[in-house]
């Protein structure tokens, strides 16, 4: 079973993503911010990171940037999910190494589709 780390400071968003991904057959772990996500990434292996931008302690951009500098896991796919919909926000996410950018609110089909694509699960 593919393992996904959902990183978002909003508990309801984490619950929502967890439900969608669980229903689609993914194992889901959660982190409240980028810092907690980094700690989890050091300890555990994830097939995919789904990351919000605006979070306390360590924002989504900084998390992806740091992840891309961690030798053992720098190839892990990252989907950024944010309320920020401007082109410059997406560009910044891709610049730091995100693989894909989804503007909130997330549609379940969309999340599952890209989670499968980036983890190699057949659609």
């Amino acid at each position: 079973m593919k393992k996904v780390l959902v990183v978002d400071d909003a508990a309801t968003v984490r619950m929502y993503h967890r439900k969608i991904l669980n229903d689609a057959g993914f194992q889901v772990d959660e982190a409240l911010n980028g810092l907690e996500a980094l700690e989890k990434a050091f300890k555990d292996e994830y097939d995919l990171y789904i990351v919000d931008i605006n979070m306390p302690k360590l924002d989504g951009y900084s998390f992806v940037d740091k992840l891309r500098n961690m030798e053992s896991i720098k190839q892990s796919p990252v989907i950024v999910v944010s309320t920020e919909s401007e082109e410059k926000d997406k560009e910044k996410a891709y610049e730091v190494g995100a693989n894909f950018y989804i503007v909130k609110p997330v549609k379940p089909d969309e999340l599952v589709k890209y989670a499968k694509i980036f983890t190699g699960v057949p659609l």
Binding site: I53, N54, P56, K57, L58, D59, G60, Y61, S62, K88
Partner: peptide, 12 residues
């Protein structure tokens, strides 16, 4: 601010 770290630190 365009700086996400600063923005979030300001919120806190």
């Amino acid at each position: 601010s365009e700086n996400a770290y600063l923005r979030n630190a300001v919120i806190e």
